[in-house]
């Protein structure tokens, strides 16, 4: 039995090493002076740690600008996505309206269509609207999501009808019921959804790559990909760029992981 315990925990530690090592090493290499990581065997630790790569990113690659672009876009995308999807999901669960079941069925059927199918005409549509190469153009596909609407609907269905009927009996308006009764009860799911929306926007690559031309408006992933094609040999600089791209999302995840993972696990078992 003791050997079994030892084996399981050793394997757990080994696996954690495998998942975390690339991320830890990324930080280490980002602190190495330019050119010093391209040696054999590869160095694990910087002999002379330096922040030169970060200064280079800030002064020459305009990384601060890309960081602000990503932060701004992800924040606005999260706020808009939460507003639109939560209102819609709640309506599908708790408000009777003409055509509700038919629309829900159509949405469910549309769930199987991958986003890429829409992207070519969407590009032409945004071109006609003058939204190509704008921040608004980047935001468009992440505004409303069918999957998110159903996630909210699922959470809203769990709210007891009696609770809402009682509030109506007391003369509360529908808006008050939504704000004061429903939203607080759906809070755990809203955190999950919010993190989901933020990560989705932050990590998105395909669409911003298509819709943005001016490098001033590039988000971090697009800027990093462009940088990596220019600086194939500059490992240390590229690692610093990866650190800048990953630290904000890793921090967000660590801060909210308890809620986020719980929401993910709860959703998975039901689904």
């Amino acid at each position: 039995m003791r050997r079994h315990t030892l084996l399981v925990n050793a394997l757990l530690i080994l696996t954690a090493g495998l998942t975390l090592f690339p991320l830890v090493w990324m930080v280490s290499v980002s602190l190495m002076p330019a050119g010093t990581s391209a040696t054999y065997p590869p160095p694990l630790w910087p002999a002379h740690p330096t922040l030169a790569n970060y200064t280079e990113l800030w002064t020459h690659a305009g990384m601060a600008r890309h960081l602000l672009n990503s932060l701004g876009l992800a924040t606005v995308a999260t706020a808009l996505a939460l507003t639109l999807n939560v209102a819609a999901g709640y309506a599908f669960a708790k408000l009777e309206f003409p055509g509700r079941e038919a629309v829900a069925k159509a949405l469910l059927a549309a769930l199987v269509i991958p986003a890429q199918v829409a992207m070519l005409p969407l590009f032409l549509e945004l071109k006609a609207l003058g939204l190509v190469d704008t921040y608004a153009g980047v935001l468009v596909p992440s505004l409303a999501g069918i999957f998110s609407i159903f996630l909210v609907r699922q959470a809203a269905l769990a709210i007891p009808h009696e609770l809402i009927d009682a509030a109506r009996m007391d003369g509360a308006s529908e808006w008050t019921i939504f704000r004061r009764v429903a939203l607080p009860l759906m809070r755990p799911m809203l955190v999950t959804l919010g993190v989901f929306a933020f990560l989705g926007s932050w990590n998105d690559f395909f669409w911003p790559l298509i819709v943005l031309n001016d490098s001033d408006r590039y988000t971090l992933p697009v800027a990093l990909a462009a940088l990596s094609r220019e600086h194939v040999q500059d490992n240390e600089l590229m690692m610093a760029g990866s650190v800048v791209t990953l630290v904000p999302v890793l921090a967000l995840f660590l801060a909210l992981q308890r809620h986020y993972l719980a929401g993910l696990m709860a959703g998975a078992v039901k689904g």
Partner: peptide
């Protein structure tokens, strides 16, 4: 174990 799955593909592909 979860940490890599929230990372940006472009950034970790560089690593």
């Amino acid at each position: 174990y979860f940490a890599p799955s929230i990372t940006t593909v472009v950034a970790v592909a560089v690593i």
